[in-house]
Nucleic acid binder design. Structure first.
Lengths: 227, 227
DNA sequence: GAGTATTGTTACAGATTTGTTAAATATTGA
DNA sequence: TCAATATTTAACAAATCTGTAACAATACTC
């Protein structure tokens, strides 16, 4: 469903931070703090993108990069280099080795995220957005189409976002506030009852002939996507 | 069983609020309103998570964060920064310093709680399970479902809260007043007999075929969750 | 065992929450 | 700009939950 990112980083706090934030963003994250291990794991897992620390205890990041770029099977996986100081020379080396992008620590997380997205979009336009499936409901994010039992369903933008959010963790109950925050976002000047109305419309839209209702109401708590 | 959270915050009302709510949630809470003290206490107590105010009288939160992240013994404790205004720059600084997450005051308490849980889940996956189990009774807090012997049970909101509270410390006897305070909360205009009625309803709900009663009455004292 | 205190249970009125519709407002695209 | 769409709010109906009172049952004291 979402892209898989491999992080090679030996500093635990940074690794924790990256993993946490990337996962929050919906990416699958694997990692290694050790160069040798990283190489074999990457070949095995074939992630869509690699974040690679410059400084590692055993193999240096630049070495890893070189090895990877020589391997037919993984040479097309984009790599973002992470280095401690932004010396121009380093930057050049990094890029010459084949790294697709480069960031200097301490880096701005939003910027890193932006670059990750950009790279993923470029390299595998279909990875960032693909399919989410729950029971007989399917969201094709690429075409932004929604199907129930192979029948296409038309949703408004909000309903689409709402469904996309709910499907992230089916069965989990989200409060109206959570939904407002994640689906509506910044625009907090909205009453929570608004959610109800959109839920109703979403229900109507996805409730085709011969199917169970898919949205559960949990009184005084919220809603969840569930049979 | 439950996680220990350290709060560094110099504004008393906020500290009180946080402590109260976190304890209610079942966490052990320690705190300090002073940066220097916080540092030594944290090293001593090794909490599972730190809530760190950005603005402190002596050391700034960001400094504390830096110190902590340099200390081998505590560098892996996740930190949530609390700041007054959500400037993007601040946010970035906060994360670069090693804080795992970040919240802007005034913050939504449920959101904070959600993030705390998320972080704790990452660091200590087994500490904050979203499940509570006592004998053959299981509460899945994520989907807000309750099961007895794998059979799903339907509870009203109050019953659900009540059970959730009782299960925190099975066998412990809670007085009606305690239950009113923790389950009913703000609404103190309720007679203590009300508890009895809800206990009855809860009993009926969780008492399925072939099971022992799970709620014990302790005459002139209160109730407990117990076979 | 009688009498008292405490708890269990039930029914019902009132309160709260949710579902739904329709109308008002905002946004978008031609 | 205007028209088409989308979104929000408001309003009311329906569903569900809650607190209380009344009475029954039980436990406790003497």
């Amino acid at each position: 469903m979402s892209a898989h990112i491999f992080v090679v980083e030996d500093e635990k706090p940074i690794l924790t931070l990256l993993t946490y934030n990337l996962e929050k963003e919906g990416y699958k994250v694997s990692s290694s703090s050790n160069g040798e291990e990283a190489l074999s794991l990457i070949k095995e897992k074939k992630p869509e993108l690699i974040l690679l620390d410059w400084m590692l205890p055993d193999l240096s990041g630049i070495k890893i990069c070189q090895y990877l770029k020589q391997d037919e099977k993984v040479k097309n996986i984009p790599i973002i280099m992470l280095t401690a100081k932004g010396e121009e020379e380093d930057k050049v080396k990094g890029l010459n080795t084949g790294a697709e992008d480069y960031m200097t620590k301490p880096f701005s997380y939003p910027e890193l995220l932006a670059r990750i997205k950009a790279l993923l979009r470029r390299v595998k336009p279909n990875v960032v957005s693909d399919e989410a499936i729950y029971l007989d409901l399917r969201i094709d994010r690429e075409s932004m189409k929604v199907f129930r039992k192979e029948k296409e369903i038309t949703l408004g933008p909000k309903e689409y976002k709402l469904l996309n959010f709910l499907i992230k963790q089916p069965k989990r109950v989200y409060s109206r506030d959570q939904l407002l925050e994640h689906v509506w976002g910044d625009d907090i000047n909205v009453e929570s009852r608004t959610v109800d109305v959109h839920i109703t419309r979403l229900r109507q839209a996805i409730n085709i002939e011969g199917t169970k209702p898919l949205i559960r109401t949990v009184r005084s708590a919220g809603y969840s996507l569930e049979n």
